[in-house]
Design a binder for these strands. Structure first.
Length: 250
RNA sequence: GGUACGGUAGCCAAGUGGUAAGGCAGAGGUCUGCAAAACCUCUAUUCGCGGGUUCGAUUCCCGCCCGUACCU
C-alpha cells in the first residue's frame, strides 16, 4: 500500500554497487539543490582508510560549532570518523543518520543519503525499529560454543515467535535474538519492528551493466594501486590493526 | 637420453574397479546491533590424449603429449 508521504520531509537516497558513480552524482545533486551528504558506506566510516575504500577526498573543517568533513565544499556525515579498530553497527548508523537529517532540515538543506550498504539505507528508509540492546561480547562468546540446535532450543523457550522469523541456519542471527531476549527480558520478536515512514523519499538507483561495472572496478583498482593501496595497508598493519578486524576485510 | 613423481571445474585440491569430496572464485537468494559480514541454494554427463583388460575404468595395463625434481 502506497502511503501518502507528501507531507513528510524530503530525503534523497542514492544507491548502487561499488564504483557505479554514486559519489559523482551525489556531489552534483548536492551542489544543485543545496544538499548535505550522509554516507551509508560501512567501510568509508573508518579513518585512515582512504584509498582502499575509494573515499572521496575531503577535509575536516569547522562548520558552526562542530567539525565536519567537506568534499568539494559539501558537508559529508558518517564518513572518515571512526578508528579502524572499532565496530560500527546498523543501529548506530540509523541513530546518527536520523540525527544528521534533522540537522540538515534545521539548516534548511536537503539530506542526501549515499552509499552501497543496503542495510544501512533500509534502516532509515524503511524505519527499522532495532531492539535497543547492545551487543555483549561475553554472552556472545559463551553462546557461540553451543550448537545451533541447542541455541534454537533456548530461543524456542524464550521467544517461540522469533524462531519463526529468523534464519535458523545462521548462528549469528540466533545469538542476536537470544542476546536481546536475555539482556532485555523481553521478546526479540516484539522489539523488532518497522516503524511508519519518516521521509518523503526520492530514491535514485544507479543502473549499470555488468560489463561496464567490472571495467570501472578494474580501472579503480589499478588507480588504487597507483595511489598507494599497499602502502596504506602496510601502515595500518604496522599500527597493530590486524587483518582480522572487520575494517580490514577489503 | 634415463629415473621418479604428477596432469581432476576459472584456481587450489581429495578420491575410488561401480559411475566425481571439499575450499576459493563466480551466479542467485535471505537479511533489523559485525552487512565489503553471516547464512542458504546452484555451479565437471566428466578426471591430459589414444588404445587395451573388464559386465563396468577417473581408478589397472600399454603408448604418446605436457609439467616438476633428480641423474648421466
Amino acid at each position: 500500500m502506497q502511503k501518502d508521504t507528501q507531507h513528510l520531509p524530503k530525503l534523497v537516497v542514492i544507491l548502487g554497487p561499488t564504483a557505479s558513480g554514486k559519489t559523482g552524482l551525489s556531489l552534483t545533486l548536492a551542489k544543485k539543490f543545496n544538499g548535505e551528504i550522509i554516507s551509508a558506506d560501512s567501510r568509508q566510516i573508518f579513518k585512515k582508510m582512504n584509498i582502499g575504500t575509494a573515499k572521496p577526498k575531503g577535509e575536516w573543517r569547522w562548520n558552526g560549532l562542530r567539525k565536519t568533513f567537506f568534499v568539494e565544499d559539501i558537508p559529508h556525515h558518517l564518513i572518515d570518523f571512526l578508528d579502524p579498530g572499532k565496530v560500527f553497527t546498523v543501529a548506530e548508523f540509523r541513530d546518527k543518520a536520523l540525527k544528521y537529517t534533522k540537522m540538515a532540515y534545521q539548516a534548511g538543506r536537503v539530506p542526501i543519503i549515499v552509499g552501497g550498504t543496503g542495510l544501512y539505507i533500509s534502516s532509515v528508509v524503511d524505519n527499522y525499529i532495532i531492539p535497543r540492546v547492545n551487543q555483549n561480547p561475553k554472552l556472545r562468546a559463551s553462546l557461540s560454543e553451543k550448537s545451533n540446535e541447542e541455541l534454537l532450543a533456548l530461543l524456542e523457550n524464550l521467544d517461540p515467535e522469533a524462531v519463526k522469523i529468523i534464519d535458523v541456519a545462521n548462528q549469528r542471527r540466533i545469538i542476536r535474538a537470544l542476546e536481546v531476549c536475555i539482556l532485555s527480558g523481553e521478546r526479540f520478536s516484539k522489539q523488532r519492528k518497522k516503524g511508519d515512514e519518516l521521509f518523503n523519499v526520492l530514491q535514485i538507483g544507479i543502473d549499470i551493466s555488468r560489463e561496464d561495472l567490472y571495467r570501472r572496478i578494474n580501472e579503480r583498482t589499478e588507480k588504487m594501486m597507483e595511489d598507494g593501496l599497499l602502502g596504506e595497508a602496510q601502515s595500518l598493519l604496522k599500527q597493530k590493526y590486524g587483518w582480522n578486524l572487520s575494517s580490514m576485510n577489503s
